[in-house]
Design a binder for these strands. Structure first.
Length: 717
DNA sequence: ATTGAGAGCCAC
DNA sequence: AAACGTGGCTCTCAAT
């Protein structure tokens, strides 16, 4: 097609006249445009996917007579039907549907849903509860924030009696309710009674909220959220409603669908009853469903009940304790970093131009221009590092990145996250945040598990206390050794040798003396071990070691030859997951389901599920060791506190590292007791555990036990 | 203003 | 030919 300049001359008088005529016709037409024509016109417009979806929904609802057009304002005639009106109607439609659902919920409220708003009814319910061995509990609140939101009502299910009660106390509605404190005191004996077994969905939240009311929940024996993670860690969501819809086939709309952003305290009591009591009802049904299925995996059930369940309260306590932040240190360090950032920024901008250095999209072309060649991305490790030697500006940029990350994510950010109420920094631990069973940490605030050394320095013990920390030495490789039963590795650990030196000596065929601390062989063996555990290929390993792929391949091959039993175990895992679609963690206490392993194209000789199968066993089993030990550490803390020489608390756990907050007057015996729990709570069969213990006031600024016992003072803040 | 995806990078 | 496991947060940038 040819293109003539004249084709785009816009201001030809004849054309504009035509347009004017056309639009006049259009106006005339629109006055008597039929609704069908209007829809055709609107739907032909450039609409986003979401708008199209909404428009079609409105169209269908209008055609079904569910809604009509907006009312005409007095004295005006109805204008033409516009996209804007259609989208306004969408909101009208959603609100109407929501109201319909809520009305229906109220109408259909079962007789065994009890709304308790007077003392007599509460007493009647309490007398029913006194006969119950197990109950469901759930708190309704103003929102999800355990520090800002507060309790507005209690849901309790009397299981045997089959009654689901809602006891509102703080709804902002014009309906009578029982006094908040009165209900707390009436329910306290139940909540705090160990003998009254309790079921909840996401019990950690309810326990937190009740703790805010001064109630110490005891006897929690089942959490339907954590149980579901045992049954299927791949579930897309662990929210109650979707699980109930999916597994019990009870249609359940989410809180947001029903109430939007409204807090539960704004909900009328009849609606509140229908919604809240149903939570107790379906949680109970989900519990029964889960029990039936977990019974088929007795080791998983036992692990769940003896480790995961007690762990909930251990985590609650840890989250509530929080962290003291050295603000003075943070401020001073932050200023230093900021000055450095400014200096580096100025230097880089001189070479690259005045761009946003934090924007990869702006950075990439600027770098390409500056160095005169194209780059794939601005990834520090993969792309920029190899260029740093040749181009000083890249080196400076990498330095900028590093300092910027430290400043913006950690040093400058942490003080901002301090909780106003407690004056401390709090994290949220997700008990099974990783599909392997590891915990994760964060929850909109601080992630305790990825603090770099520099940032750990901001975390300090309160006056009079010290941080007693222990980390399992080579936790995952000990697990690997146990599972594979590789004789050379077992021997290494039985004799208390240095693993990396042993591996280096074998892989590089060097005398052990040349593979000790500080040797390049030992360092490389460390990387190779990691590659084995993570399933890293030769290409990546080559990059990490700064060697050719050829050499990296040789190293991996050499490892397989020298530690053939490990290689065989990895191969077994591959076969197992291919056959079964899952792997077992230690003692069948937990599964990692990798269903993709079963329906793979046979042409693929590698898929990530195979590396995952081995890694999941190692990582997941290590997590079991950590969690089982956490439960015992909590008991140790309670025992020590009871001795009366000051309070002991579990402070933080980072995968293979456990830190306690203990009185600064601790004794050698105290430390030995701590070590004993770390070493002996959970063992991988015949492999001995090893634990390195350190004492500190500032996280990471520690002295060893030996130093401590020989009288070396713990560094002051 | 809020949200979500992608890039990038911190930890074990 | 294909190959690094598990997370979470900050920043940018585009979309709503």
């Amino acid at each position: 097609m040819t293109f003539k300049l004249t084709d785009i001359s816009l201001n030809k008088p004849d054309e504009s006249t035509k347009e004017a005529v056309k639009s006049a016709e259009k106006r005339k037409k629109s006055a008597d445009e039929s609704i069908e024509e209007a829809w055709e016109r609107i739907l032909a417009m450039k609409n986003s996917d979401k708008d199209t979806e909404r428009l079609l929904e409105v169209k269908a609802a209008m055609e079904a007579g569910e809604i009509g057009r907006e009312p005409v304002q007095e004295g005006k005639r109805q204008g033409k039907f516009s996209k804007a009106e259609a989208l306004r109607l969408y909101k009208v439609l959603s609100d109407k549907r929501r109201d319909d659902v809520l009305r229906k919920m109220v109408e259909d409220t079962p007789d065994n849903y009890w709304l308790i708003t007077d003392k007599a009814k509460l007493d009647e319910f309490l007398s029913i509860l006194s006969e119950e061995e197990i109950i469901v509990f759930d708190v309704e609140t103003t929102g999800p924030d355990i520090w800002k939101d507060y309790l507005v009502g209690h849901v309790i299910t009397a299981v045997e009696a089959d009654i689901h009660a809602y006891i509102p106390t703080k709804h902002n509605v014009d309906q009578p309710q029982l006094n908040h404190g009165y209900v707390i005191e009436k329910l306290r004996p139940i909540y705090e009674n160990e003998a009254v077994k309790k079921i909840a969905h996401n019990a950690k939240y309810d326990i937190h909220i009740l703790a805010n009311e001064g109630i110490d929940v005891r006897g929690a024996v089942w959490d339907t959220l954590e149980a579901m993670r045992m049954l299927n860690e791949n579930e897309p969501t662990f929210a109650l409603k979707p699980l109930v819809s999916k597994y019990l086939r009870i249609p359940s709309l989410s809180y947001g669908d029903l109430f939007g952003k409204k807090g539960f305290h704004e909900v009328d009591l009849d609606v509140a009853l229908a919604y809240a009591a149903k939570d107790g009802d379906v949680t109970l049904k989900l519990y029964e469903f889960q029990r039936k299925h977990l019974a088929k995996m007795p080791e998983v059930l036992r692990y769940y009940e003896t480790v995961e369940i007690p762990l909930i309260k251990v985590i609650v306590d840890m989250e509530r304790l929080g962290y003291d932040i050295d603000l003075e240190y943070a401020d001073q360090y932050g200023k230093e970093l900021k000055a450095k950032i400014d200096r580096l920024h100025a230097e880089i901008v001189e070479g690259l131009g005045d761009i946003n250095l934090n924007s990869p999209t702006q950075l990439k072309p600027a770098i390409e221009k500056a160095i005169g060649r194209t780059i794939e991305n601005t990834d520090a490790k993969k792309t920029l590092k190899p260029l740093a030697r040749e181009f000083p500006i890249i080196k400076t940029l990498l330095e900028y990145r590093e300092v910027m990350k430290l400043y913006s994510t950690y040093i400058n950010a942490l003080p901002e996250l301090i909780n106003e109420k407690t004056g401390k920094l709090h994290t949220v631990f997700n008990q099974n945040g990783a599909k392997t069973g590891r915990m994760s940490s964060g929850g909109g605030g601080v992630n305790l598990q990825n603090q770099p050394q520099e940032a750990r320095r901001l975390f300090v013990a309160p006056p009079g206390y010290v941080i007693l920390g222990g980390d399992w030495s080579q936790q995952e490789y000990r697990a690997l050794t146990y599972f594979s039963q590789e004789p050379r590795l077992i021997e290494n650990y039985e004799q208390g040798n240095d693993l990396y030196a042993t591996v280096a000596s074998e892989v590089f065929d060097k005398p052990i003396e040349e593979c000790g601390d500080g040797s390049v062989y030992r360092q490389q063996a460390k990387t190779i071990m990691l590659a084995v555990a993570y399933g890293t290929g030769a290409r990546t390993l080559a990059m990490q070691l700064g060697k050719s792929q050829e050499e990296a391949r040789k190293f991996l091959k050499s490892f397989d030859e020298r530690f053939p039993v490990v290689a065989k175990w990895i191969e077994q895992n591959r076969e197992f997951v291919q056959r079964n679609g899952f792997v077992w963690m230690d003692k069948k206490q937990r599964k990692r389901r990798l269903p993709d392993a079963r329906n793979r194209d046979s042409d693929f000789w590698y898929t990530s599920v195979y590396t995952q199968s081995t890694n999941a066993i190692i990582q997941g089993s290590s997590a079991i060791q950590t969690k089982a030990t956490m439960v015992e550490l909590d008991k140790l803390c309670k025992r020590k506190t009871a001795e009366g020489n000051g309070e002991w608390r579990l402070w933080c756990v980072v995968h293979d590292e456990a830190l306690l907050l203990v009185p600064e007057t601790i004794t050698e015996q105290d430390i030995r007791d701590f070590e004993d729990v770390m070493l002996n709570t959970y063992k991988f069969g015949n492999i001995p555990n090893k634990c390195d213990i350190e004492i500190q006031r500032r996280w990471g600024e520690s002295i060893t036990v030996e130093e401590f016992l020989s009288g070396k003072p713990i560094p002051e803040l």
